[in-house]
Protein backbone atom coordinates (compact mmCIF):
# COMPACT_ATOMS: atom_id res chain seq x y z
CA UNK A 1 0.00 0.00 0.00
CA UNK A 2 2.79 2.38 0.87
CA UNK A 3 4.25 1.44 -2.47
CA UNK A 4 1.09 2.43 -4.25
CA UNK A 5 0.99 5.75 -2.45
CA UNK A 6 4.58 6.32 -3.45
CA UNK A 7 3.93 5.53 -7.07
CA UNK A 8 0.92 7.80 -7.10
CA UNK A 9 2.94 10.57 -5.57
CA UNK A 10 5.71 10.15 -8.13
CA UNK A 11 3.16 9.98 -10.91
CA UNK A 12 1.30 13.07 -9.83
CA UNK A 13 4.44 15.10 -9.34
CA UNK A 14 5.82 13.95 -12.65
CA UNK A 15 2.43 14.75 -14.13
CA UNK A 16 2.67 18.25 -12.80
CA UNK A 17 5.99 18.60 -14.54
CA UNK A 18 4.64 17.37 -17.83
CA UNK A 19 1.53 19.51 -17.51
CA UNK A 20 3.72 22.57 -17.03
CA UNK A 21 5.83 21.73 -20.06
CA UNK A 22 2.87 20.83 -22.23
CA UNK A 23 0.50 23.71 -21.64
CA UNK A 24 2.55 26.02 -23.82
CA UNK A 25 3.01 23.42 -26.53
CA UNK A 26 -0.71 22.76 -26.53
CA UNK A 27 -1.52 26.42 -26.95
CA UNK A 28 0.81 26.68 -29.92
CA UNK A 29 -0.61 23.53 -31.50
CA UNK A 30 -4.16 24.58 -30.94
CA UNK A 31 -3.93 28.12 -32.25
CA UNK A 32 -1.19 28.19 -34.84
CA UNK A 33 -1.38 24.51 -35.84
CA UNK A 34 2.39 24.38 -35.81
CA UNK A 35 4.25 21.52 -34.16
CA UNK A 36 7.00 23.32 -32.36
CA UNK A 37 9.76 20.73 -32.35
CA UNK A 38 11.90 23.22 -30.49
CA UNK A 39 9.51 23.55 -27.53
CA UNK A 40 11.69 21.33 -25.34
CA UNK A 41 14.64 23.58 -26.16
CA UNK A 42 12.79 26.52 -24.67
CA UNK A 43 12.37 24.54 -21.47
CA UNK A 44 16.11 23.93 -21.56
CA UNK A 45 16.73 27.63 -22.16
CA UNK A 46 14.55 28.39 -19.16
CA UNK A 47 16.73 26.10 -17.09
CA UNK A 48 19.95 27.65 -18.27
CA UNK A 49 18.39 31.07 -17.88
CA UNK A 50 17.70 30.23 -14.25
CA UNK A 51 21.29 29.15 -13.88
CA UNK A 52 22.58 32.32 -15.51
CA UNK A 53 20.38 34.44 -13.26
CA UNK A 54 21.81 32.59 -10.30
CA UNK A 55 25.42 32.76 -11.43
CA UNK A 56 25.37 36.37 -12.50
CA UNK A 57 22.77 37.97 -10.26
CA UNK A 58 22.52 35.50 -7.44
CA UNK A 59 18.81 35.08 -8.05
CA UNK A 60 16.74 32.16 -6.88
CA UNK A 61 14.97 30.45 -9.79
CA UNK A 62 11.58 31.54 -8.57
CA UNK A 63 12.74 35.13 -8.89
CA UNK A 64 14.67 34.53 -12.09
CA UNK A 65 11.26 33.94 -13.66
CA UNK A 66 10.81 37.68 -13.88
CA UNK A 67 13.72 37.92 -16.27
CA UNK A 68 13.52 34.58 -18.04
CA UNK A 69 9.85 34.67 -18.95
CA UNK A 70 9.87 37.98 -20.83
CA UNK A 71 13.13 37.03 -22.53
CA UNK A 72 11.76 33.76 -23.83
CA UNK A 73 8.50 35.44 -24.82
CA UNK A 74 10.44 37.86 -26.99
CA UNK A 75 12.64 35.12 -28.43
CA UNK A 76 9.68 32.93 -29.29
CA UNK A 77 7.64 35.77 -30.75
CA UNK A 78 10.60 36.87 -32.86
CA UNK A 79 11.20 33.35 -34.16
CA UNK A 80 7.57 33.00 -35.18
CA UNK A 81 7.48 36.41 -36.82
CA UNK A 82 10.77 36.08 -38.67
CA UNK A 83 11.01 32.41 -39.50
CA UNK A 84 7.77 30.52 -39.10
CA UNK A 85 5.37 33.14 -40.42
CA UNK A 86 6.89 32.74 -43.87
CA UNK A 87 6.12 29.04 -43.81
CA UNK A 88 2.40 29.29 -43.03
CA UNK A 89 1.49 27.45 -46.21
CA UNK A 90 4.36 24.98 -46.15
CA UNK A 91 3.78 22.35 -43.48
CA UNK A 92 6.73 20.19 -44.55
CA UNK A 93 9.10 23.13 -44.45
CA UNK A 94 7.74 23.98 -41.01
CA UNK A 95 8.96 20.61 -39.81
CA UNK A 96 12.39 21.23 -41.27
CA UNK A 97 12.56 24.73 -39.83
CA UNK A 98 11.40 23.90 -36.30
CA UNK A 99 13.63 20.85 -36.22
CA UNK A 100 16.46 23.06 -37.42
CA UNK A 101 15.67 25.39 -34.54
CA UNK A 102 15.83 22.45 -32.16
CA UNK A 103 19.29 21.55 -33.43
CA UNK A 104 20.42 25.16 -33.46
CA UNK A 105 19.37 25.99 -29.92
CA UNK A 106 20.67 22.75 -28.48
CA UNK A 107 24.06 23.06 -30.12
CA UNK A 108 24.33 26.77 -29.48
CA UNK A 109 23.94 26.11 -25.77
CA UNK A 110 26.37 23.21 -26.06
CA UNK A 111 28.92 25.45 -27.67
CA UNK A 112 28.35 28.23 -25.19
CA UNK A 113 28.66 26.04 -22.13
CA UNK A 114 31.28 23.74 -23.66
CA UNK A 115 29.54 20.79 -22.16
CA UNK A 116 30.02 21.76 -18.55
CA UNK A 117 27.32 20.36 -16.34
CA UNK A 118 25.60 22.87 -14.15
CA UNK A 119 23.20 22.64 -11.33
CA UNK A 120 21.05 25.30 -9.81
CA UNK A 121 20.61 25.46 -6.09
CA UNK A 122 17.35 26.77 -4.84
CA UNK A 123 16.03 27.74 -1.45
CA UNK A 124 13.38 25.13 -1.86
CA UNK A 125 15.43 22.35 -3.39
CA UNK A 126 16.67 20.70 -0.26
CA UNK A 127 13.37 20.75 1.52
CA UNK A 128 11.00 17.89 1.36
CA UNK A 129 7.61 17.44 2.90
CA UNK A 130 5.76 14.49 4.17
CA UNK A 131 2.35 14.15 2.60
CA UNK A 132 0.24 11.28 3.84
CA UNK A 133 3.30 9.31 4.81
CA UNK A 134 5.07 9.84 1.50
CA UNK A 135 8.20 11.93 1.10
CA UNK A 136 7.68 14.61 -1.47
CA UNK A 137 10.35 16.94 -2.80
CA UNK A 138 9.38 20.56 -2.31
CA UNK A 139 10.65 21.57 -5.71
CA UNK A 140 8.35 19.11 -7.41
CA UNK A 141 5.50 20.29 -5.27
CA UNK A 142 6.24 23.83 -6.32
CA UNK A 143 6.25 22.71 -9.95
CA UNK A 144 2.89 21.07 -9.43
CA UNK A 145 1.49 24.23 -7.87
CA UNK A 146 2.92 26.34 -10.67
CA UNK A 147 1.44 24.04 -13.29
CA UNK A 148 -1.97 24.37 -11.72
CA UNK A 149 -1.67 28.14 -11.41
CA UNK A 150 -0.40 28.50 -14.95
CA UNK A 151 -3.16 26.35 -16.38
CA UNK A 152 -5.78 28.19 -14.35
CA UNK A 153 -4.33 31.56 -15.26
CA UNK A 154 -4.16 30.70 -18.91
CA UNK A 155 -7.68 29.38 -18.83
CA UNK A 156 -8.95 32.58 -17.26
CA UNK A 157 -7.04 34.70 -19.72
CA UNK A 158 -8.47 32.79 -22.65
CA UNK A 159 -12.00 32.91 -21.33
CA UNK A 160 -12.33 36.33 -19.79
CA UNK A 161 -10.22 38.75 -21.78
CA UNK A 162 -10.84 40.11 -25.26
CA UNK A 163 -7.36 39.11 -26.36
CA UNK A 164 -7.87 35.62 -24.98
CA UNK A 165 -11.13 35.30 -26.87
CA UNK A 166 -9.41 36.51 -29.99
CA UNK A 167 -6.81 33.78 -29.58
CA UNK A 168 -9.53 31.15 -29.23
CA UNK A 169 -11.30 32.58 -32.23
CA UNK A 170 -8.20 32.27 -34.36
CA UNK A 171 -7.86 28.66 -33.25
CA UNK A 172 -11.42 27.91 -34.32
CA UNK A 173 -11.70 29.90 -37.55
CA UNK A 174 -8.94 32.28 -38.51
CA UNK A 175 -10.73 33.73 -41.53
CA UNK A 176 -13.79 34.57 -39.47
CA UNK A 177 -11.52 36.06 -36.83
CA UNK A 178 -10.12 38.42 -39.43
CA UNK A 179 -13.62 39.56 -40.16
CA UNK A 180 -13.99 40.47 -36.51
CA UNK A 181 -11.05 42.80 -36.80
CA UNK A 182 -8.52 40.42 -35.29
CA UNK A 183 -4.98 40.82 -36.64
CA UNK A 184 -4.35 37.13 -37.06
CA UNK A 185 -0.64 37.43 -37.78
CA UNK A 186 -0.20 39.32 -34.54
CA UNK A 187 -2.09 36.66 -32.64
CA UNK A 188 0.28 34.06 -34.08
CA UNK A 189 3.44 35.60 -32.73
CA UNK A 190 1.78 36.58 -29.47
CA UNK A 191 0.59 33.04 -28.93
CA UNK A 192 3.92 31.54 -29.88
CA UNK A 193 5.61 33.89 -27.44
CA UNK A 194 3.20 32.90 -24.67
CA UNK A 195 3.87 29.26 -25.46
CA UNK A 196 7.62 29.65 -25.26
CA UNK A 197 7.36 31.78 -22.12
CA UNK A 198 5.37 28.99 -20.49
CA UNK A 199 8.11 26.57 -21.50
CA UNK A 200 10.58 28.92 -19.86
CA UNK A 201 8.45 28.93 -16.73
CA UNK A 202 8.67 25.17 -16.65
CA UNK A 203 12.41 25.33 -17.17
CA UNK A 204 12.97 27.79 -14.36
CA UNK A 205 11.02 25.74 -11.87
CA UNK A 206 12.49 22.44 -12.97
CA UNK A 207 16.08 23.70 -12.88
CA UNK A 208 16.60 22.68 -9.25
CA UNK A 209 15.23 19.21 -9.96
CA UNK A 210 17.14 18.14 -13.03
CA UNK A 211 20.81 18.41 -13.76
CA UNK A 212 21.29 20.74 -16.67
CA UNK A 213 22.44 19.50 -20.02
CA UNK A 214 21.83 20.91 -23.49
CA UNK A 215 20.23 17.62 -24.52
CA UNK A 216 17.55 17.70 -21.87
CA UNK A 217 15.13 19.43 -24.20
CA UNK A 218 14.54 16.34 -26.27
CA UNK A 219 13.56 14.30 -23.25
CA UNK A 220 10.60 16.62 -22.73
CA UNK A 221 9.29 17.02 -26.23
CA UNK A 222 8.05 13.48 -26.63
CA UNK A 223 6.06 13.13 -23.40
CA UNK A 224 4.76 16.65 -24.08
CA UNK A 225 3.54 15.54 -27.46
CA UNK A 226 1.87 12.51 -25.94
CA UNK A 227 0.20 14.79 -23.41
CA UNK A 228 -1.11 17.11 -26.05
CA UNK A 229 -2.44 14.45 -28.37
CA UNK A 230 -4.00 12.46 -25.54
CA UNK A 231 -5.43 15.46 -23.78
CA UNK A 232 -6.75 17.29 -26.78
CA UNK A 233 -5.50 20.12 -28.90
CA UNK A 234 -6.42 23.59 -27.84
CA UNK A 235 -7.79 22.44 -24.55
CA UNK A 236 -5.91 23.86 -21.59
CA UNK A 237 -7.74 21.50 -19.29
CA UNK A 238 -6.88 18.64 -21.61
CA UNK A 239 -3.19 19.46 -21.46
CA UNK A 240 -3.36 19.70 -17.70
CA UNK A 241 -5.13 16.38 -17.24
CA UNK A 242 -3.09 14.76 -19.97
CA UNK A 243 0.07 15.62 -18.08
CA UNK A 244 -1.12 13.58 -15.16
CA UNK A 245 -2.18 10.66 -17.30
CA UNK A 246 1.28 10.53 -18.81
CA UNK A 247 3.01 11.06 -15.48
CA UNK A 248 1.06 8.29 -13.79
CA UNK A 249 1.60 5.94 -16.73
CA UNK A 250 5.31 6.54 -16.52
CA UNK A 251 5.37 6.06 -12.78
CA UNK A 252 3.53 2.76 -12.94
CA UNK A 253 5.54 1.54 -15.89
CA UNK A 254 8.75 2.52 -14.19
CA UNK A 255 7.81 0.59 -11.09
CA UNK A 256 6.31 -2.58 -12.48
CA UNK A 257 8.51 -2.81 -15.53
CA UNK A 258 12.08 -1.82 -16.20
CA UNK A 259 12.54 1.95 -15.82
CA UNK A 260 14.54 1.93 -19.02
CA UNK A 261 11.44 0.81 -20.88
CA UNK A 262 9.03 3.39 -19.55
CA UNK A 263 9.12 5.49 -22.69
CA UNK A 264 8.46 2.37 -24.67
CA UNK A 265 5.40 1.69 -22.56
CA UNK A 266 4.23 5.24 -22.94
CA UNK A 267 4.58 5.03 -26.67
CA UNK A 268 2.71 1.74 -26.76
CA UNK A 269 -0.11 3.20 -24.67
CA UNK A 270 -0.17 6.28 -26.84
CA UNK A 271 -0.42 4.25 -30.04
CA UNK A 272 -3.03 2.08 -28.40
CA UNK A 273 -5.18 5.09 -27.56
CA UNK A 274 -4.85 6.36 -31.10
CA UNK A 275 -6.05 3.07 -32.53
CA UNK A 276 -8.90 2.64 -30.11
CA UNK A 277 -10.01 6.25 -29.82
CA UNK A 278 -8.78 8.17 -32.83
CA UNK A 279 -10.04 11.54 -31.67
CA UNK A 280 -7.83 11.48 -28.60
CA UNK A 281 -9.27 11.43 -25.14
CA UNK A 282 -10.81 14.87 -25.22
CA UNK A 283 -11.39 15.18 -28.95
CA UNK A 284 -11.10 18.90 -29.41
CA UNK A 285 -10.63 21.57 -32.00
CA UNK A 286 -7.99 20.73 -34.55
CA UNK A 287 -8.08 16.98 -34.22
CA UNK A 288 -8.60 16.79 -37.97
CA UNK A 289 -5.34 18.59 -38.46
CA UNK A 290 -3.59 15.86 -36.57
CA UNK A 291 -5.27 13.34 -38.78
CA UNK A 292 -6.82 11.69 -35.79
CA UNK A 293 -10.27 11.54 -37.30
CA UNK A 294 -9.22 9.90 -40.51
CA UNK A 295 -9.48 6.22 -41.11
CA UNK A 296 -7.35 4.66 -43.80
Amino acid sequence: MADLANILAVGILLGGTYALVSVGLNLIFGVIRVVNFAQGEFVMLGMYGAYAAYAVLGLDPAVALLVVLPALFVLGAALQRLVLARLRTEPTMQIFATFGLLMLIENAVLAATRGTAYSVPSAVAQASLSVGGVQVGASRLLALAAATLAAAGLGLFLRRTMLGRAIRAVAQDSAAARLMGVDVERIYWLTFGIGTALAGLAGCLLAPIYSLSPQIGTSFILPAFAVVVLGGLGSVLGAYVGGFIVGLTEAFAGYYLDPALKHAVLFAVFIGVLIVRPSGLFGQVGAEEVGLREQS
Partner: peptide, 28 residues
Protein backbone atom coordinates in the same frame (compact mmCIF):
# COMPACT_ATOMS: atom_id res chain seq x y z
CA UNK B 1 0.90 1.20 -39.94
CA UNK B 2 -0.83 2.66 -36.84
CA UNK B 3 0.72 6.08 -37.24
CA UNK B 4 0.17 6.66 -40.93
CA UNK B 5 -3.19 8.09 -40.05
CA UNK B 6 -1.35 11.03 -38.51
CA UNK B 7 -0.65 13.98 -40.70
CA UNK B 8 2.60 15.76 -41.45
CA UNK B 9 4.29 16.99 -38.29
CA UNK B 10 2.37 14.60 -36.06
CA UNK B 11 3.56 11.67 -38.08
CA UNK B 12 7.06 13.10 -37.75
CA UNK B 13 6.84 13.30 -33.98
CA UNK B 14 5.42 9.81 -33.71
CA UNK B 15 8.37 8.48 -35.71
CA UNK B 16 10.69 10.50 -33.52
CA UNK B 17 9.11 8.89 -30.49
CA UNK B 18 9.65 5.52 -32.06
CA UNK B 19 13.34 6.27 -32.47
CA UNK B 20 13.60 7.05 -28.80
CA UNK B 21 11.80 3.86 -27.89
CA UNK B 22 14.14 1.94 -30.17
CA UNK B 23 17.10 3.44 -28.36
CA UNK B 24 15.74 2.28 -25.04
CA UNK B 25 15.11 -1.21 -26.41
CA UNK B 26 18.51 -1.21 -28.10
CA UNK B 27 20.33 -0.41 -24.90
CA UNK B 28 18.29 -3.01 -23.10
Amino acid sequence: WPVFRLRGPFFAIATMAFTEVALAIGNY
